[in-house]
Design a binder for these strands. Structure first.
Lengths: 164, 164
DNA sequence: TCTAACTATTTAGCACTGCTAACGAATTAT
DNA sequence: ATAATTCGTTAGCAGTGCTAAATAGTTAGA
């Protein structure tokens, strides 16, 4: 792994061991790991017959309660048109329901249905089974590392999003 | 965060604090973090005028050297038709070149061009700048956590992929 | 009040990325 | 020589991201 580092540094002309270089390495590896994790998780998502974006949005609805489309888009950090399509898909599958806001006619209120909650729970169980198999040799202490990493990523991305 | 845990457990009927529950939580958070990290990184990828799958494949080519399409697909854990299209895109952009294998006429040899290497380097630099800003308050010690997490994910996913 | 400006959502259209099924071409085995 | 296998591509579907533009509702101002 250190060998890898120096190979990369040599090829790209960075000073081995510098902080810049290390952050670059971390950024790259995280990016790659995220891509591969999601590609792996896709297998489970396909079983649920719903794409990752829908499951993620559904999760927000289930744990965060009903909310407007714009709120949901902000929570998921996508633009409104993207979320509009995701919500349309959830509705088509009967996983969420849409009502127009009584106070503001422009707004809609998106709510997870019982079916949506149930599917999400099943998807979560499937996901843990999949991950449990692949992460079998990951020790409990390492799980803490993973959780901490997830927290760091979430908070960093969320902060960085605001600045853009 | 512990509060979050118990809320989720309560709603989904898990025993709080059980190992199953904790793994489920970790799996969920990782999944969510991966989605959000990639959505964030997309902004940088868009600047590079190349999608994440292309940049990831290009990275494999740059650091792993020339290889056949099937190898590349395996390394990236996608199916051959998917990689075929990705490579076609890299070729169209002049980032990779394709030759037919001299020994086996069915095979192709995909190689990163000088332009491809340069673009990847630039993309990496852009990515670190983006991440460096968003991760400004992440301490150096935490960087180790992130790197370790990336390693765990990669190795776990790679092992799990073989079993499927 | 009537209109102008703003806000929330949707529609249309583009690009990228994943899949399976089916095909062609080259190689290997019988 | 023929059959089976392997490698890659093409075709076609679905999902997810974006911007630009349309639509409808709300708020502010003359």
């Amino acid at each position: 792994m250190l060998a890898m580092l120096s190979v990369r540094d040599a090829k790209l002309g960075h000073m081995p061991g510098s902080k810049e270089s290390f952050r670059l390495e971390v950024a790259d590896r995280l990016h790659s790991a995220a891509i591969h994790l999601l590609r792996h998780a896709r297998k489970q998502d396909v079983l649920a017959r719903q794409g990752p974006a829908r499951l993620s949005a559904l999760s927000v609805l289930v744990f965060g309660g009903p909310m407007a489309l714009g709120q949901l888009a902000a929570a998921e950090q996508v633009k409104a048109p993207t979320m509009s399509r995701i919500v349309a898909g959830l509705k088509r599958s009967g996983l969420a329901r849409i009502e127009t806001d009584s106070k503001d006619g422009r707004r809609i209120r998106v709510t997870a249905t019982a079916k949506g909650k149930k599917l999400l729970q099943q998807a979560r169980v499937r996901r843990i089974r999949l991950l449990a198999e692949t992460l079998r040799e990951v020790q409990d202490a390492e799980l803490d590392t993973l959780l901490r990493a997830a927290e760091l990523i979430e908070s960093a991305v969320r902060q960085g999003a605001g600045k853009k």
